Amino acid sequence: MGPREIYPNPPLALVVVELRHTVTAALSEAQQSALKSLLTDSFPLARPTLAAVSTIVTPAGVRNEQTPPNPRYMTRDNTASVTFRPDAIAVETTRYVRRSALRDTLRLAVAARQKVAPADGLTRIGVRYVNEVRADVESAADWSQWIAPSLTNVAGLEAGANGLAQSWQGMVVFGDQQQGIVLRHGNLDGYAVNPSGDLRRPTPSPGPYYLIDLDSYWTPEDETPTLDWDNIESHYDDAALSAHGLFEQLITDKYRQEVLRRDQ
């Protein structure tokens, strides 16, 4: 397996790796401090997530429940974070370089969690790539220059006096419940990932973009394996490589040559 090309002008706005595990108790202040100590060289900033309020409807009436903040640790440039939830570890970055670098961060996060407050088992691995494909378009039909016909052929449909299709969104599922990829796509406007969010990102000019959102996943088939790196690494690599292979099928050579390979 040869090295994959690293494009100088990639469309990635956000990459998320989520390792779901068996539910644990909320982390104590002492445990959160221990996690920060283990991650501080790379993730020195403690920035808990915001508390969430959910509405629960029961036969007895309606009540609001507040979910407490989850511990989260961020880089000083605010482009990457590690979050520990009672049921998952999430690693996020808006400055993705290559699979191996993200794998190292994931391994660090797993080791820290298992040292401080071990979870009993692994229940899902998800690797998500949110791409904002931006190119020179004046009409919806122009996306066929940059995005594969399998996604853009709908632009040729005409609805009588209403004219041609102007916008579309869709979801495609590959694989099954154990292993696969969920693709969400469509021609949109603005941003898929908020530039003003907690994770900072390069801010292109707002305007039309084509969303290619790939969620590549693996779940155990029978037994629940332990949350150990030996049970994670190969499945992480497979999920990431599967998403990469699908992305390459969804763009045209024109986009690859004129946009992805263009120096910023």
Rank of each mutant, 00 (worst) to 15 (best):
N78A: 14
P71K: 07
L39P: 03
N64F: 13
A60P: 06
Q66E: 10
S54Q: 13
R72D: 01
I56P: 01
S37P: 00
N78M: 14
V53S: 11
A34P: 03
D77E: 12
A46R: 15
S37V: 00
S33T: 15
G61V: 07
F84T: 04
T83D: 02
T40C: 04
V53R: 12
T58H: 01
D41P: 01
T83H: 02
T67G: 05
N78D: 10
T79G: 02
Q32T: 11
R85W: 06
V53Y: 01
T55Q: 15
D87M: 10
A80C: 09
V62S: 02
E65K: 02
R76K: 14
T49D: 08
L45F: 03
P48F: 03
S81L: 12
T83Y: 02
P68Q: 08
E65D: 09
R76W: 01
S33M: 12
Q32V: 04
P86N: 12
P86K: 09
P44W: 06
F84C: 05
A88Y: 07
F84H: 05
A60Q: 15
A51S: 14
P44N: 07
S33G: 15
S81H: 01
V57I: 13
Q32F: 00
R76V: 12
V53Q: 13
P44K: 07
T55E: 14
P71N: 06
V62R: 08
V91M: 03
R47E: 12
P71S: 06
S37R: 10
R76C: 08
F84K: 06
G61F: 08
T40S: 13
I56F: 00
I56K: 10
R72A: 12
T49I: 04
A88P: 07
E65M: 03
